[in-house]
Design a protein around this nucleic acid. Structure first.
Length: 886
RNA sequence: GCGAACGUGGCGGAAUCGGCAGACGCGCAGGACUUAGGAUCCUGUCCCGAAAGGGGUGCGGGUUCAACUCCCGCCGUUCGCACCA
């Protein structure tokens, strides 16, 4: 073999008989896996299907980075472990290749992304093979393939037909210099990431999915362990994102014109009613003004003639701010008075209506009742503009002020509420926002009620009078899927002057994205696709007259919200997912991915799955039975970044150390779910370990007079009786116990993704074998099996050298015998008054008396107990004895 | 600001139904083999101390026979969310 020769010449060491040459071994087994279809389960007939999914990568020009390698190796290790446990593991891979990153890179290169992506994918594929992933390459997919996005468009149509897709105007980030729409991630501190100009907002018609219709189910399922076994932190992130809050919608009508004090002027409001959402209906008596979001549709109705100019100027100013800086930028609250009033339904008093940008159109109703006494933001605003601040909740969490001073009420007040007022009815220095401890004051008939009761009572009272109702509000809002961009699947809609928005007939899918040269966005705010008339103008599917295509493409998150449904069915071109295949393989058995996708990607995938379930397309509503987030890799204690120059290029390490060593190092450097610190020096550890095992295998494969070969090793391992084989159980008890302990520790570590401790256990076992000079075949074979998920090529080669002719992945994972995990003699720690003074070796489960007697034999122990009375004895069998002396 | 996770040798990290702190690995030190060693093997390696012993898991308290682990209060790091009414 040519590679072997050149390798030998370069490296004299390799010429030594039987030395470990990772590159040769790895190339051999990668070729053999492909030839023998080792990683391709029978998707139709698999007896124990296990769908092992990992988040597919975005194929960047730089190639897979260490973080990807870490994630994929961890997921692959789990899949290989499950395979060894006898599951039919399906481990597919694909590419999330649409989106702004690819598009921007293509713009920078001046080459259409459609031409660049295949190159990147080819590079990714090479890297994924090189690292030794157990991928089923028959089912590889790319979201940019028309055969794939045809079905992405199909999903859009299903939602459209089900009334779950709709169009409305919404704000987008707009760079006035580049004259283009920017994605949120392209806006840095309110500025365009490329030209640094201040970003503005523009309103464009966009497509939305009604994910809010599913908010309650998306939330409820999070608690359903039968459907979802997810890491707690991910569940929490989803829960926070959904942001359920209970409260009330309350109506504040414009004052009746006849009753308006100054009838000469038209009363602003025009009979309109402002609806607000609040979680604190109990504080309504303290609502002294109202605030509308500047974009609120009722602003014009409430604005009077003399405030018109000021209001318009303010709204213009806000529109010029981009979405990001409005939220995170200067927090100073500004606003203007509209001149209009609305009636507080509790007090019957008209209160002024303001507009301010601290009220957001996208949350609640886009309008609030401002209660400055009990909300920090309203308090700040009221202070700034001199609006009245009223206390309507008295603080009962702390004692009243000792002097009881400052009260303005008569001294003969008797109720508790009034006593509280007497103590506290002084100007508030800050908002009192305690949600639980407090009783109502200055609130008419509700005075004296505790806050939680008052919430219910006031909501009910308002509802009775038609002025409000209890509602549940979610922070989640509908999913904007429109992107005014080129590199994505065109949204399959045609606009006809007569028939409006018409869905593209399913038989006409895909609506192919044309390969065009000028794909840069322009100042129209419309996708570049609009410039291509031959594509843009199409006959209306209903009447055949000239109509126009939708030019927005869909969000990349839509591509990735269903890819796991496609994998098992990639060979079917007449359906997105085959029912039988889907029934067999889904929901996904195990999903591993990054925390950065803990919210959006997972939520959108759940949503799409739920909609398809409701449409009768799927018989499950949660797509991922088990989800675990992996950790982050840092380099020498710092986050990797180009600017720091500490980015690890995996290819270099793999070339130098081999894929198996690199895999083992990644899995060893920290708990998989927490990540770890990548240090170059550390890699030599796993490499030295593999070298040691290599020697052990070589010695075992070449029997010396000392090593005992079982009559038929294959029979023993294949029927998985390895662990309890009599030869193994009786011979060399110290090692046998160590072996069973190792199997237990490794197996349990694998299941919990504590790969670092599993590897440590394997290292300990190898050290023990070497200390004993043992080449016990069954133990060595068990060791190689347990090593296989981490170092698959190495394990295959070792397995072959041990005389086997099948793939090691068709053998079963070793089992441990619980009776052989525990030793007959145990060491018990002897403490005197809690301090360790000695240890004794006693039979397992020894009686307390026997241990005490043994302890008294110990000179060090005696020195501390001599002449003292033992007041108390604490005995933990097999662990510890504590003699407490007086 | 809110939420979550975390804080252990020179370094990565073990050990949390409370029970020998520092497994395993890196690094370092000494030794063996060697023409040589950035290979390999052996020994040692939390701190103070010659030893006996003492101290030690971010800091300060508490519960307990016993605390890295539980409780209270701080400090710090990281990651999410960020005017959510």
């Amino acid at each position: 073999m040519k590679t072997t020769e050149s390798r030998v010449k370069q490296n004299p060491e390799a010429a030594q008989e039987g030395s470990y040459q990772p590159d040769v071994v790895e190339a051999k087994w990668q070729a053999r896996w492909a030839e023998r279809h080792i990683n391709e389960p029978d998707l139709d007939r698999a007896a124990r299907p296990f769908y092992n999914l990992m988040m597919f990568p975005y194929p960047s020009a730089e190639g897979l980075h260490v973080g990807n390698m870490f994630a994929f190796t961890g997921a692959d290790t789990y899949g290989r472990f499950k395979r060894l446990q006898g599951y039919d593991v399906f481990e597919p891979i694909g590419y999330d290749a649409f989106g702004i990153h690819s598009e921007n890179y293509a713009i920078a290169q001046g080459i259409n992304p459609g031409k660049l992506i295949p190159r990147n994918i080819a590079n990714f594929r090479r890297q994924l093979r090189r690292i030794g992933g157990m991928f089923d390459w028959r089912h590889e997919l790319s979201t940019t393939d028309p055969e794939y996005y045809k079905w992405t468009q199909w999903i859009f149509l299903q939602l459209f037909k089900a009334g779950k897709a709709y169009k409305k105007a919404a704000a987008v980030n707009w760079c006035p210099k580049d004259k283009t729409v920017l994605a949120n991630e392209q806006v840095i501190n309110g500025r365009c990431e490329r030209c640094d100009s201040i970003v503005e907002q523009r309103f464009l018609e966009q497509w939305f999915f009604r994910i809010t219709d599913y908010a309650d189910r998306l939330l409820a399922n999070l608690d359903d362990k039968s459907k979802m076994d997810w890491s707690e932190s991910t569940v929490l992130a989803q829960r926070n994102w959904l942001g359920r809050s209970e409260g009330a919608e309350i109506h504040f009508p414009a004052p009746h014109p006849e009753r308006s004090e100054e009838t000469s002027r038209p009363s602003a409001g025009n009979g309109q009613t402002i609806k607000v959402f609040t979680t604190r209906p109990d504080t309504i008596f303290g609502a002294t003004f109202m605030v509308l979001a500047p974009e609120h549709p009722l602003v014009d109705a409430f604005t009077t003639q003399e405030h018109r100019a000021e209001v318009d100027a303010y709204r213009k100013m806000v529109a010029a701010k981009d979405l990001v800086s409005r939220k995170v930028g200067e927090r100073e609250k500004t606003g203007v008075f509209t001149g209009g009033f609305a009636v507080n339904p509790a007090t019957g008093q008209p209160i002024p209506v303001w507009i301010a940008d601290y009220v957001l159109m996208e949350y609640g109703t886009g309008a609030i009742m401002a209660v400055p006494g009990h909300d920090e933001r309203d308090f700040e605003f009221a202070r700034r503009y001199g609006l009245p601040i009223v206390r309507v909740v008295a603080d009962t969490s702390s004692r009243p002020r000792p002097e009881g001073g400052g009260g303005i009420l008569p001294a003969d007040t008797s109720s508790r509420a009034q006593r509280e007022i007497a103590a506290q009815d002084v100007p508030l220095e800050e908002a009192f926002t305690d949600n639980e401890n407090g009783i109502l004051v200055h609130s008419g008939q509700f005075d004296g009620l505790a806050v939680p009761e008052a919430k219910r009572a006031i909501t009910a009272w308002l509802a009775e009078r038609g002025a409000g109702k209890a509602v549940v509000n979610y922070r989640l809002h509908d999913w904007t899927i429109s992107r005014q961009r080129y590199w994505g699947p065109p949204i399959p809609i045609i606009y006809c002057d007569e028939h409006g928005a018409v869905p593209v007939p399913e038989k006409d899918l895909p609506v192919e994205l044309p390969i065009i040269e000028d794909f840069k966005p322009d100042d129209t705010g419309v996708s570049p696709l609009a410039r291509h008339e031959e594509w843009y103008y199409v006959p209306c599917p209903v009447c055949g007259k000239r109509a126009r295509r939708e030019t927005d493409v869909s969000d990349t998150f839509l591509d990735s919200a269903w890819y796991f449904l496609r994998y098992p069915s990639t060979e079917f071109d007449d359906r997105p997912f085959d029912p039988a295949r889907t029934r067999k393989w889904l929901p996904v058995t195990s999903y591993i991915g990054g925390n950065e996708h803990a919210v959006l990607h997972l939520l959108y995938s759940r949503f799409i799955t739920m909609v398809l379930h409701d449409l009768g397309q799927l018989d499950f509503e949660e797509p991922f039975r088990k989800f675990r987030a992996h950790g982050l890799i840092v380099k020498d204690g710092a986050k990797m970044s180009k600017s720091r120059g500490n980015v690890v290029i995996p290819d270099e390490y793999i070339a130098r150390w081999g894929a198996d060593t690199f895999r083992m190092y990644l899995m060893f450097l920290g708990p998989f779910q927490e990540g770890g610190d990548f240090r170059d020096e550390g890699i030599s550890g796993p490499r030295r370990f593999l070298e040691k095992v290599w020697k052990l295998v070589t010695e075992t494969a070449t029997p010396t007079p000392d090593s005992r070969l079982p009559t038929d090793s294959r029979l023993v391992t294949r029927d998985s009786r390895l662990a309890t084989d009599s030869g193994l159980a009786t011979r060399d008890s110290r090692l046998t116990i160590k072996y069973h302990q190792t199997v237990k520790r490794v197996t349990e570590g694998m299941e919990q993704l504590h790969y670092n401790t599993s590897i440590a256990a394997l290292m300990e076992f190898v050290n023990a074998l070497r200390e004993e000079g043992s080449t016990n075949r069954q133990m060595v074979e068990g060791l190689i099996l347990m090593l296989a998920p981490f170092a698959p090529h190495f394990a295959e080669e070792s397995w072959e050298r041990l005389g086997h002719d099948t793939s090691i992945f068709d053998v079963r994972w070793p089992k441990w015998d619980q009776s052989l995990v525990v030793e007959d003699q145990v060491e018990v720690v002897i403490q005197v008054s809690g301090k360790t003074r000695g240890r004794v070796s006693v039979p397992r489960n020894a009686e307390q008396g026997a241990v005490v007697a043994a302890a008294q034999e110990d000179a060090a122990v005696r020195r501390f107990t001599e002449g003292k009375e033992v007041r108390k004895v604490v005995y933990v069998p097999n662990r510890l004895l504590n003699l407490v002396v007086g």
